[in-house]
């Protein structure tokens, strides 16, 4: 491997090594030489033994949007706890819920995971299925009063997705790849029915 590629690979893994090292030092709670050196060795060992594929090539972290994302996350956290607590007290067993389908524009594993996580943290929504291939989230939401609530929550989830995409400078798939025709509505050419149950994740 050319030295330039090798140095680039090391650079890719550097944040993870630093993060693991920091975790080690924090968990041991002391800054002695043994802890520091041992932590560095442990971090390097882990990253060498379990290499993760490089994540989000070409991602440009935008601090302003990340700040907005974190702010909204905090607010959503508090709102979601109060929403559920209020629904538990007020309606209890009579709470109505709904399962809605949220199509996504993002097509990256890590980002979809982040969107699903933050959707679960957001008020009123819990992700129960992720259709990775067709880029859809199935979200269970409560409390639901009417179709308007469902549409509102769907819109909130899509706003969230947009915020996540903006905070790493993600460009949507170019037109022609994410075609408006839903691929699952078109029967595949070899005649096998589309198999949703076998979907991973």
């Amino acid at each position: 491997m050319s030295p330039r590629k090798r140095s680039r690979r090391i650079l890719h893994h550097l944040p993870l090594v630093v993060w693991l090292w920091l975790l080690w030092v924090v968990l041991w709670g002391s800054l002695s030489a043994v802890v520091l050196v041992g932590g560095l060795l442990a971090a390097l060992l882990i990253v060498a033994l379990f290499p993760l594929p490089s994540v989000l090539p070409g991602a440009v972290p935008r601090p302003l949007w990340i700040g907005a994302l974190l702010f909204h996350l905090l607010v959503d956290l508090i709102r979601s706890g109060t929403t559920v607590a209020w629904a538990a007290v007020r309606h209890g067993g009579r709470t109505r819920s709904a399962i809605m389908e949220v199509p996504l524009h993002i097509d990256d594993d890590v980002l979809i995971t982040v969107v699903a996580e933050i959707t679960t943290i957001a008020p009123g929504t819990v992700v129960i299925e992720i259709d990775r291939r067709r880029r859809r989230l199935y979200v269970h939401t409560l409390p639901v009063r009417d179709q308007e609530t469902v549409d509102l929550r769907k819109k909130e989830t899509q706003d969230l997705e947009r915020r996540v995409a903006r905070s790493v400078g993600y460009r949507h798939a170019p037109p022609g790849r994410g075609s408006p025709i839903d691929p699952s509505d078109v029967p595949p050419r070899d005649g096998t029915p589309p198999d949703h149950r076998g979907e991973r994740g």
């Binding site: 956290l77 559920v84 629904a87 007290v89 209890g92 269970h140």
Partner: peptide
């Protein structure tokens, strides 16, 4: 309140809301 929700909600997925959101916030 999360525990109350865990008791009062009628199905597993709704109880999930109470368990994951309210408990985590608490």
């Amino acid at each position: 309140l999360g525990a109350v929700g865990l008791l009062r909600f009628r199905d597993t997925v709704s109880r999930l809301h109470a368990a994951s959101k309210a408990q985590t916030l608490g």
